[in-house]
Simulated assay, not measured.
Amino acid sequence: MRAGLDIPLAVAAAFVVGALAMWASGYDPAASYRSMLLTPLMDHVYLFSALAFSAPIVLTGLTFAVGLRAGLFNIGAEGQVYMGALGAVLAAYLVKGWAALPLALLAGISLAVAWAVVPALLKSLRGVNEVVSTIMMNWIAYWLSIMAVSTVFANPLQPEESVKTPPEARLTPLVPGTDLTLAVPIAYAVAALVYVFLKYSVWGFRISVSGQNPLAAKSYGISPGRTIFYAFAVGAAVAGLAGVLQVVARPPSYSLARNLANVYGLGFDGITAAMLGRGHPLGVVLAGIFLGVLQEGARHMQIEAGTPFEFVRIIQGVIILFLAVRILRT
Rank of each mutant, 00 (worst) to 15 (best):
R2P: 13
D6V: 08
A10M: 00
A14I: 01
G18R: 02
A21W: 04
M22C: 02
A24R: 07
A24D: 04
A24M: 11
G26Y: 14
A31E: 14
F53I: 09
S54E: 03
G61C: 14
L62R: 05
L62V: 11
F64C: 12
F64S: 13
G67E: 09
A70F: 02
F73E: 04
G76V: 14
A77Y: 11
V81P: 09
A85H: 01
L86K: 15
V89R: 08
A91Q: 07
V95A: 12
G108T: 11
I109P: 08
I109H: 05
S110M: 02
S110D: 03
A112R: 03
V113W: 06
A114T: 05
V118Y: 12
K123Y: 00
G127E: 00
S133R: 09
L144T: 14
M147A: 04
S150D: 10
L157N: 09
P166L: 11
P166Q: 10
E168P: 02
R170Y: 08
L171I: 10
T172G: 01
P173H: 11
V175H: 12
L180P: 02
T181R: 07
T181E: 04
A189D: 14
Y195K: 08
I207N: 07
S208H: 06
S208P: 13
S208V: 03
S210D: 04
G211C: 07
P214R: 02
L215D: 05
A217K: 01
A217T: 02
K218V: 07
P224H: 13
G225V: 05
R226F: 15
I228S: 06
Y230Q: 03
Y230N: 00
A237L: 10
A242Y: 07
V248M: 06
A249F: 01
A249K: 00
R250F: 15
S255A: 15
L256K: 10
A261E: 07
A274I: 04
A274S: 14
M275E: 04
L291E: 05
I303V: 15
A305I: 00
A305F: 00
F309V: 02
F311L: 11
R326W: 11
I327G: 00
T330D: 03
